Amino acid sequence: MNENKLKHLEFIQGVINRMGQNSFLLKGWTVTLVAGLFVFANIQEMDYRFISIALIPTIFFWLLDGYFLWQEKLFRKLYDHVRIKAEGEVIDFSMNVKPFAPEISSWMRICLSNTLGLFYLPIIVIIVITMAFVYKY
């Protein structure tokens, strides 16, 4: 394999790894933040508005996680594009993924995918149920 092609694939793989790591960290921060807000809440004086604060970062982390997953899929397409290049083709080390965007589901569609929905929806449901419980009492 051409040395330039191999190096370009390594660059792309590095970006894919970072996107996966960012997604993993966002999930960890979401759980930590929501659990922390619940742990430090005073049950006797808890206000439903205090709990609703947990919805804001959860939704933003969900959207950001979807963005990272979308970018990861775009870079996988770029990886495949570079991988199948013929031996004589010029390697330009381009990291532009815009040409592959029409081939991938939209960012919002990825946010609503099973992968992310099954993680973030239960957290949001728990927050809403807790808000409703606290609001009643």
Rank of each mutant, 00 (worst) to 15 (best):
Q44T: 14
Y48H: 08
L6G: 03
Y67W: 13
K27A: 12
R49Y: 15
G88P: 00
Y79P: 02
G66Y: 05
S113F: 02
V15D: 10
T30G: 02
V39Y: 15
I53T: 14
T58W: 11
N4S: 03
V82Q: 01
N17M: 13
I53H: 10
E87A: 07
L121C: 08
F11D: 12
V128N: 05
P57Q: 14
S94A: 08
Q13L: 10
K98I: 07
F40Y: 14
I123A: 02
I84M: 03
Y120N: 01
D80F: 11
Y79F: 15
V90R: 12
L74P: 09
K27P: 13
T32H: 06
I12V: 14
I51R: 03
S52R: 11
A54D: 09
N22D: 08
F11Y: 15
R83K: 15
V125C: 13
Y137R: 13
E10R: 11
A54H: 09
I110Q: 02
V90C: 04
K77H: 12
V134R: 07
K85E: 07
K77R: 14
V31K: 05
V15Q: 14
N2S: 13
P102M: 10
A132T: 13
K98S: 09
F68A: 00
L69S: 01
I124Y: 07
I59L: 15
A86G: 04
I53E: 10
G117L: 02
D65H: 05
K85F: 08
L69Q: 07
F133P: 00
H8K: 01
T58G: 11
N4D: 09
G66V: 04
Q13G: 04
T30M: 04
K7F: 15
S105Y: 10
G20M: 07
S52Y: 07
M46I: 13
Y48T: 04
L74N: 11
L112W: 09
Q21N: 15
W29I: 02
K7C: 06
F75C: 03
I56R: 08
V31W: 07
G28A: 08
G28R: 09
T130I: 03
A86C: 00
C111W: 04
N42C: 06
I110N: 01
V128G: 05
F75G: 03
N17F: 13
R76I: 13
P122I: 07
Q44K: 15
D92I: 08
E87P: 00
I53K: 10
K5D: 05
T30F: 06
S105F: 10
I59M: 08
Y79H: 15
M46G: 04
T58M: 11
N17K: 14
G66P: 04
N22H: 09
F93L: 02
F38R: 03
I127L: 04
W70A: 00
N114C: 00
G88L: 08
V82K: 01
E45Y: 11
L69I: 10
G117E: 00
E87T: 06
K136H: 10
I12W: 11
A54L: 13
I51N: 01
F11P: 01
T32I: 11
Q13Y: 05
Q71W: 06
I12M: 05
P102H: 09
N96I: 10
T30E: 03
R109K: 14
D47R: 12
I16K: 04
L63W: 11
